[in-house]
């Protein structure tokens, strides 16, 4: 049996969880086994109602007032108990921040390996291989699991929610959750959003995005001039925000905004997966980087190998002259 764990994102099934449902259906088909879907914790009824549309063998709900709000303590205990009781071969989840927060606890409790951030699966006649990016996305690896069970989390777009087969579960089950107040050591407060000031990059047609390759805060005005000449918004990768060169609302990636402009002009961005998930849907990607092995070039339509500090000022001048 394979088990898919659904995550609630403010009233809806998390988009990554939908992709995990598609993954679960594919696993069940390839491995010729049953598929169970688990709705856990927060607003479990909302999850259950939405999951009743998906074709599965069993839809399980696990609810208790002690996990009405997410905590790593509560979720890891309950998921461990479900796994111990139902013995799934694979437990499938999206590689969300919540999964990263509590699933390693399950792995340690049960001594079941957790293969995280998988980008694709080769079913390999029943003994699957899981590929993931390593060494800052410069290389990839195929991981083989030697234990009988494994926890798996998938990077976004490893599977597509468009492939979900509808039809509903064959049966439903309520899992008997055993939790006491002593199990929950941490106190969680409600989620909140910081003031949404700033720029909606998702609406921008043209984006000039800067990475650590701009080398210094002093070079940012040069990049801004190019954006101005093109009528583009300025965006960045995480390190630029971490160093305080640009405000957080300019950041593209898993912890920033997800954009799909007509042109994403990437300047000195290496292309770590956390960034790429935020911009790979762009219609055209033009990237400048002096490292010809930079992983950004794997997804670029145009790969410029060169020194952006020389290229950008001349390019800006040319654009301004052509107007």
């Amino acid at each position: 049996m394979v088990l898919v764990v659904l995550e609630n994102q403010r009233g809806n099934i998390h988009p990554f969880s939908l992709e995990a449902v598609a993954a679960g259906q594919k696993f069940a088909q390839e491995l010729n086994c049953e598929l169970s879907i688990l709705c856990i914790g927060e607003k479990v009824d909302e999850l259950r109602t939405q999951a009743q549309n998906f074709k599965s063998n069993k839809l399980i709900t696990a609810q208790n007032s002690l996990i009405d709000m997410y905590s790593a303590d509560g979720y890891s205990k309950v998921l461990s108990d479900v796994i111990s009781s139902m013995a799934p071969k694979y437990v499938l989840m999206g590689h969300s921040y919540m999964v990263r927060d509590f699933v390693p606890r399950v792995s340690a409790k049960l001594s079941i390996p957790f293969v995280s951030d998988i980008i694709s699966v080769d079913f390999n006649n029943g003994s699957p291989l899981f590929s993931k990016q390593v060494f800052n996305a410069k290389l990839a690896t195929n991981i083989e699991v030697s234990s009988n069970q494994a926890l798996l989390s998938f990077q976004s777009a490893a599977f597509s929610s468009d492939d979900i087969q509808e039809g509903g579960p064959d049966s439903e089950e309520v899992f008997d959750v055993q939790l006491t107040e002593q199990d929950i050591r941490t106190q969680s407060e409600p989620e909140f959003q910081e003031s949404a000031s700033g720029v909606d990059l998702t609406a921008a047609e043209l984006i000039v995005s800067v990475g650590r390759g701009v080398e210094s805060e002093d070079n940012l005005p040069t990049m801004q001039s190019l954006a101005d000449a093109m009528g583009a918004e300025v965006a960045s990768s995480r390190p630029v925000v971490d160093m305080g060169w640009l405000p957080p609302y300019r950041q593209v990636g898993s912890s920033g905004q997800v954009v799909s402009p007509k042109l994403y002009f990437s300047l000195g961005i290496s292309g770590a997966i956390q960034h790429v998930v935020g911009m790979k849907g762009s219609k055209n990607i033009l990237a400048i980087n002096k490292d010809e092995d930079a992983p950004i070039f794997e997804i670029a339509d145009y790969a410029v190998i060169g020194d952006l500090l020389e290229i950008v000022p001349k390019l800006t001048e040319e654009i301004n002259n052509s107007k």
């Binding site: 001594s111 079941i112 390996p113 293969v115 291989l129 990016q133 390593v134 996305a137 410069k138 290389l139 990839a140 690896t141 195929n142 991981i143 083989e144 699991v145 030697s146 234990s147 494994a150 992983p295 070039f297 794997e298 997804i299 670029a300 339509d301 145009y302 790969a303 410029v304 190998i305 060169g306």
Partner: peptide, 21 residues
């Protein structure tokens, strides 16, 4: 190890990329 690397490889380019040098 319960999970191990079978191999390491350079990721395949997903797109047709035009190189500009």
């Amino acid at each position: 190890q319960n999970q191990s690397f079978l191999n390491l490889y350079v990721p395949k380019t997903e797109k047709v990329t035009e190189k500009i040098e």
